[in-house]
Nucleic acid binder design. Structure first.
Lengths: 361, 361
DNA sequence: GTGAAAGCGCTAACAG
DNA sequence: CTGTTAGCGCTTTCAC
């Protein structure tokens, strides 16, 4: 930890750095190819001294320090981090890979990651992979090529596995999606139990025919939630009907809408639908309405995630809440741990979920 | 342009690189501190030759090339881009700064940027600024410190201006939010006219008392849309009432909901509401419903942006569509132009908007 | 407390 | 076609 702290104190590189505020007046020279040598010359000291001042080392005489600082401010000099990073062999950059930045579920997680990262003097940059293995790989290459110090991956477990064995040696952690067997640190929730909770809620409301609108089976959570759904039904003495289940390759509203319309227009249609994401569930509500079904009177629906929108739609969505912020924060902390001590074996952690009952079911 | 093309062809650094697929078998050594020198030794050639092969230069004998490639694959070597970038003085990284990654409006724009960027051999990385000037600054510092080659900023114009004069020399462009006076290339829409279109639609539907739920005036678009709203009303012979207008410091659904509830519960309440973003408008619909108003019968609502959700809510939202994808693509192209030719003065461009009539108004 | 100098890993002249 | 070499701008011993 002491490493992180000392690095975070670097006056010129920490995201949260307030060590040396900018002067009000803008510097004269917009600083194109300014190097430390020129600042040194201007200050009448050696490059070593400038470097020491820039990095907040203590062993510099105050007068000297002031001379240097003056020269820096006057010239508008900014350290070239490419050079610094080459020398120190670290970039202080963290990458977060998400399958779809447009999905509000990820936004809150990303904020959690970001806040922990900057507290520790790291920048967090977001990568939209579109759940495409090729793009995923190319972002991992940023890691291999030392352009980032670490990464957090929220992509489907299947894609993570496709990265190959060699990648597990890279400094990254998995968030929400993970394969416990891979030996990569992870954080997530108990999807199996959460899905069971959703279904049991529906059961308690008297529903017997419960549909499942699921996402792509590339996602670990899709497989786990399906199993939770299946087992909850079976435990209640109900034989799951295959026609009640659908797998979608998109979490978009439209996908949920058309799936729902299909689902309820068949014989023995479900009287309730469990959708594995709120975006899907909102689409489902819309789809049901478009075929003349009322929610929850004709068909009940429960979603998953508890994105902020869930409370705003009509009717407000009953859903399983994930601790999104904490998921992100935990992921960031795991990664930081792994960076601080590459050999320590970092644990997998599961965070609690919660059933939020609103009006849709 | 030829520069971009030749760079994009670099076998080891282009995001879209497919030049030399990885072998099926994973390399033996996970490649911690492997350098080009060791590869050179292993291949029995000089570092220069390895470098040439890695960069796809033509003047290498096939046999030599194969030897090098074999050594690379065997060792699992990856180029250290920190070193390469220091040497070539470019990072091939583009930054996109958005005020809120959770707002779906930005997601599609970001995709547009990303697709153009990777077509040209650049990586695009997303930064969530939270519309905070401090964070904005720190991301711009990434630029100053050569960790990224260019940036696209979607933050409020006010924040852009606060960056100071010196920043306009930096390689960035503005998207959606911009100040034409700053001399920074930009792309956006005609917000004044678009707002007018929205209001005129409401007018045509017979509404006389039209409310405006606006965002923070830090946003240029907020000021422009307000003016469009005001002028459209005036032109119709209606004197705008101050009590019809609200400014919110958030685009969240909740913010729209509570604002709407307030707005329609006063005397002479509006019979229609124009909200400057779809997220706000969706909140508005929810807020109206919570106080017992039906949309559009009691109060009509028009939004702005046409995010995918707009068609899914009940009632489907009448809104002004922005060409989000094109906005992003254009921004990326402007930036690329600016990078290719730092001296050329890149124009500001305005893209067309479109009124989409659904059921909410 | 400060400076001189080595070298991080790479690319690009320049020779041969 | 291939090798030798000089830096890119910075941090960090090691002297003084």
């Amino acid at each position: 930890m002491s490493k992180s702290v000392s690095k975070a104190a670097r006056a010129t590189s920490s995201p949260s750095s307030k060590a040396r505020p900018q002067p009000e007046a803008q510097p004269q020279h917009p600083a194109e190819g300014l190097s430390i040598a020129q600042v040194a010359e201007q200050a009448g000291v050696s490059v070593a001294t400038v470097s020491r001042v820039l990095n907040g080392h203590e062993n510099v005489r105050p007068a000297t320090r002031d001379k240097v600082l003056a020269a820096v401010d006057a010239s508008g000099y900014r350290v070239n981090e490419l050079a610094r990073n080459l020398r120190t062999a670290e970039s202080r950059l963290l990458l977060t890979m998400v399958p779809d930045v447009g999905n509000p579920f990820y936004a809150e997680i990303v904020r959690g990651i970001d806040s922990v990262a900057r507290q520790h003097g790291y920048f967090m940059l977001l990568c939209d992979t579109g759940a495409d293995p090729g793009r995923e790989r190319s972002y991992f290459d940023l890691l291999r090529r030392r352009r980032a110090d670490g990464a957090i991956c929220l992509d489907p477990a299947t894609i993570q596995q496709a990265l190959g064995e060699a990648s597990s040696a890279l400094p990254w952690v998995a968030c929400c999606e993970f394969d416990p067997e891979m030996g990569v640190p992870y954080v997530g929730i108990d999807n199996y139990k959460a899905a069971g909770d959703a279904v049991r809620h529906l059961l308690a409301r008297g529903h017997q025919r419960i549909g499942l609108i699921n996402s792509d089976v590339d996602y670990l959570y899709a497989r786990q939630r399906q199993q939770g759904y299946l087992d909850a039904l079976t435990e209640a003495g109900i034989t799951p009907d295959e026609r009640w289940r659908m797998n979608l390759n998109s979490l978009d509203y439209e996908a949920g809408a058309s799936a729902a319309a299909l689902l309820v227009q068949q014989p023995h249609a479900p009287s309730a639908i469990f959708a594995v994401s709120d975006t899907l569930a909102i689409g489902v509500i819309h789809g049901l309405r478009s075929v003349g079904k009322r929610v929850p009177d004709d068909v009940a629906v429960v979603g998953f995630d508890d994105i902020s929108l869930a409370a705003q739609v009509d009717p407000p969505l009953t859903t399983i809440a994930q601790p999104m912020r904490e998921l992100g924060e935990t992921a960031a902390r795991l990664l930081l741990q792994r960076l601080a001590n590459p050999l320590a074996n970092v644990p997998g952690v599961l965070l609690p979920h919660r059933l939020v009952i609103r009006r849709s079911a």
